[in-house]
Design a protein around this nucleic acid. Structure first.
Length: 564
RNA sequence: CGGGGCGUAGCGUAGCCUGGUAGCGCGCUUGGUUCGGGACCAAGAGGUCCCCAGUUCAAAUCUGGGCGCCCCGACCA
C-alpha cells in the first residue's frame, strides 16, 4: 500500500495526560480516533493489526478443534444500520431506562449458546464441542477509561465448551489455557495466568490471562514460586502473632476520643495485630457485623462470597449506633444478639485481644473469640503486598495488570436451568457441563503497545504490526532514486511482503519520525548517499540498529529477517 | 450516582478575575530556497468564542439554566 493513497491521518501530538501511554501512542500514530465518549473509530492501521490478531486467534482456536460461527444479536450497531441514524449509537448508550437498555443488548451469550446446544446436541457422540465467535460487543460502561482498555464498543472472542462430564470440561478448559498462551505469545504480549474470582458468572474455577503493566486496572498478587492470583481471589498466609497466655475475663478501660486502630496503637503500645476491627454492613436490609484483625483490610469481594449476595453496603453511623449502643470507634462484638457476626479466619483461636466495648470512649482487653462471642469464620482478608505466600512463604508482590482474557468452568449452571442434555452411552439423559472463555481483541493490541514502546513510538511484533515493512524513499524528487524505490516496492509485493511504501514528498526527517511512531518492525530506506553506492538500509525498529545491504539483495534480506 | 475541572479556527491553547478591535503555536493554501532525523523566508485563507435566557450603550468575559467532554471515586464485564 502507498502512504499517499492510504488514509493515515495527520500524526499529531496528543497532550500528555493521565491516560495509558498505549492510548496516547495509538492516538498519535493514527490507529484510532475518538468518536464519542468511550467509542473509538479504528482507522486503517488499527484495523490491519486487529485483523491479524483475530487471524492468530482463529488459527489457535482451530488448533484445539473449535468451530467458528456468528451469533446475531440485537445490538446498537444493528439498530443504527436499520434506523440509518448516525447518532443512534450514542442515543442507545444514553438509555435511562434499564429495561430498554437490556432489550437492546439482548440476552446473555451463555444463555443463547446453551439454547443452541440444547437443540443441536443430542448424543454424547457429538461431544466435546467448542464453539466460538469473534464479535463486536457493546457495554453500557458508566465510565469508559484508559483508552482502549475500558470501552463501550469493542471486539471480543468468546467461546463455549460442552462436555459430558467434569473430566471433559477440565480438558476443554486446559485446551483454552494452552490456546490463549499461544495467542499471547504470538502477539508478543508477556502474560501471567492467574487464579481469578468467578464473579457473577457462577461456576467454581476461573482464570485470567493478564498482561503486567502499570496501565492495568487489575491488581495481581504474585509470588516467587509461581503462585499468582487476582487480588479479588488471592490468599496468603498470615503473619503469626504471639498472644499472651492466660485467660482473664474481658476488662473495660477508658479510651477517650480514640476512634481508629492507629489511635489505639499509640495509646496502648500494643501491635494492631492484637486488636479486633469491627465493621458494620447492611445486607438485604439485615445488619451484619464483620470482624477483622486490626492490621488487615476487608475484601468486599470475599465478603460478597461469604454472604452469598453482592447486595450490601456499609451501615450508616446511625444504624451502627442503634445496633451496638455506641458510636463508631467503640464498636465491638460482645453482647450483640440477633445479628450475624462474620469474622476473618485470622481471628480464630486468638485470645487476649483488644476490642470496642460497645460503650462510647471505652474498649475491652482480654477478649477471646469463641469464649466471649460466637462468629462464623471466613476468609475475608484482602491480601497485602509483603504477606507470606501460602505455598512458599516468600513475600507476595502486588502488581498492576491488564485483563486480556477470562476463562470459566461454568459447570451445569446454565445447562441445568435450561435443560440442555444429551443421551450418554447407556441411553440416560445427562446435563451438559459447560465452560465459557472470553478474550478482548483490543486489549491484546493495547497490551502489546504497552509492553513494546519507547519515547519515539511503538514497535509492534511483526505478527500483529499493520505492515511488515515500511519502504521509505528519502528523496522523492530524485527521479533515479524514485524509480529504484518503485522497483523495490513492486518486488516486495511480488514476494508477498506486506509493505507500506512511504511515497510522500516529505522531508526525510518527517518520514523517519512517522515510521518510528507507527510501529512497523522493519524500515527499508533508500537515500541518495547509499543509493549512489548501490545500497539500501535496513532499520530494525525495536533495536534501532541499521544495516546496509546491496540494493539487489535488499528484498531477500528483508525476507530473511521476517522469517526469523 | 458523588466530587473536581474544562468547552475560543482542523489540533493545542491565551484572553475571562477588572466587559469595549479575538490573539498565539502547529497544521492548511500560494511562491521561492531547501531535502538522511519533525527546515526556512514571504504572502494568504480559516472563528455561530458549546447552547438558551438575563444584566448592560456594549458580553468570549458578569448572572441563571441547559448540553457536552475529561479526571477522581462508586458501580460493573
Amino acid at each position: 500500500m502507498r502512504w499517499s493513497q492510504a488514509f493515515i491521518p495527520t500524526l499529531r501530538e496528543v497532550p500528555a495526560e493521565a491516560e495509558a501511554p498505549s492510548h496516547r501512542l495509538l492516538l498519535r500514530a493514527g490507529y484510532i480516533r475518538q468518536v464519542s465518549a468511550g467509542i473509538y473509530a479504528h482507522l486503517m492501521l488499527a484495523r490491519r493489526s486487529l485483523l491479524k490478531i483475530m487471524q492468530i486467534i482463529r488459527e489457535e482456536m482451530d488448533a484445539i478443534g473449535a468451530q467458528e460461527f456468528h451469533l446475531p444479536v440485537l445490538n446498537p450497531a444493528e439498530l443504527w444500520r436499520e434506523s440509518g441514524r448516525w447518532d443512534a449509537v450514542d442515543v442507545i448508550f444514553k438509555f435511562k431506562d434499564r429495561a430498554q437498555h437490556d432489550m437492546c443488548l439482548g440476552i446473555t451469550h451463555e444463555e443463547e449458546m446453551t439454547n443452541i446446544a440444547r437443540s443441536e446436541l443430542r448424543s454424547y457422540k457429538q461431544l466435546p464441542q467448542i464453539w466460538y465467535q469473534i464479535q463486536e460487543k457493546f457495554r453500557d460502561e458508566p465510565r469508559p477509561k484508559s483508552g482502549l482498555l475500558r470501552l463501550r464498543e469493542f471486539f471480543m472472542k468468546d467461546s463455549y465448551s460442552f462436555d459430558i462430564d467434569e473430566a471433559g470440561l477440565d480438558a476443554s478448559y486446559d485446551k483454552h489455557v494452552h490456546a490463549y498462551k499461544r495467542i499471547c505469545e504470538r502477539c508478543g504480549v508477556r502474560t501471567l495466568y492467574v487464579e481469578a474470582f468467578s464473579g457473577m458468572m457462577g461456576g467454581s474455577v476461573s482464570g485470567e490471562f493478564t498482561a503486567p503493566t502499570d496501565a492495568g486496572e487489575d491488581s495481581i498478587a504474585v509470588s516467587a514460586c509461581g503462585y499468582a492470583a487476582n487480588l479479588e481471589k488471592a490468599i496468603s498466609a498470615v503473619t503469626p502473632v504471639d498472644d499472651p497466655a492466660g485467660d482473664e475475663a474481658p476488662e473495660a478501660f477508658p479510651t477517650p476520643g480514640l476512634k481508629t486502630i492507629d489511635d489505639l496503637v499509640r495509646f496502648t503500645g500494643e501491635s494492631p495485630a492484637r486488636m479486633i476491627k469491627t465493621l458494620v454492613y447492611v445486607a438485604q436490609s439485615q445488619p451484619v457485623v464483620i470482624l477483622m484483625r486490626g492490621d488487615h483490610t476487608l475484601s468486599e469481594i470475599k465478603l460478597s462470597t461469604a454472604l452469598g449476595t453482592g447486595v450490601f453496603r456499609p451501615a450508616t453511623p446511625e444504624e451502627a449506633l442503634k445496633l451496638h449502643g455506641a458510636n463508631l470507634g467503640s464498636l465491638g462484638p460482645l453482647g450483640l444478639t440477633g445479628v450475624r457476626i462474620l469474622a476473618d479466619k485470622a481471628l480464630e483461636g486468638r485470645r487476649d485481644l483488644i476490642a470496642g466495648a460497645n460503650r462510647d470512649d471505652t474498649h475491652l482487653r482480654h477478649v477471646a473469640p469463641g469464649r466471649d462471642f460466637k462468629a462464623e469464620y471466613h476468609d475475608l482478608r484482602l491480601v497485602a503486598a509483603g504477606d507470606p505466600c501460602v505455598r512458599c512463604g516468600q513475600p507476595l508482590e502486588v502488581i498492576k495488570a491488564v485483563e486480556l482474557g477470562h476463562v470459566f468452568k461454568l459447570g451445569r449452571r446454565y445447562s441445568e436451568a435450561m435443560h440442555a442434555t444429551v443421551l450418554d452411552a447407556s441411553g440416560k439423559e445427562v446435563v451438559l457441563v459447560m465452560g465459557s472463555y472470553g478474550l478482548g481483541v483490543e486489549r491484546v493490541l493495547t497490551a502489546a503497545v504497552e509492553q513494546n514502546h519507547d519515547k519515539d513510538g511503538m514497535f509492534l511484533p511483526k505478527s500483529i504490526a499493520p505492515f511488515e515493512v515500511i519502504l521509505t524513499a528519502a528523496n522523492m524528487d530524485d527521479t533515479k532514486l524514485r524509480a529504484a524505490a518503485e522497483e523495490l516496492y513492486a518486488e516486495l509485493q511480488r514476494q508477498s511482503i506486506d509493505v507500506l511504501f512511504d511515497d510522500r514528498d516529505e522531508r526525510p526527517g518527517v518520514k523517519f519520525k512517522d515510521a518510528d511512531l507507527i510501529g512497523v518492525p522493519f524500515r527499508l530506506t533508500l537515500g541518495r548517499r547509499t543509493f549512489e553506492q548501490g545500497r539500501a538500509e535496513i532499520f530494525v525498529r525495536a533495536t534501532k540498529q541499521a544495516q546496509e545491504v546491496k540494493l539487489t539483495e535488499a528484498v531477500q534480506v528483508v525476507k530473511q529477517q521476517l522469517g526469523s
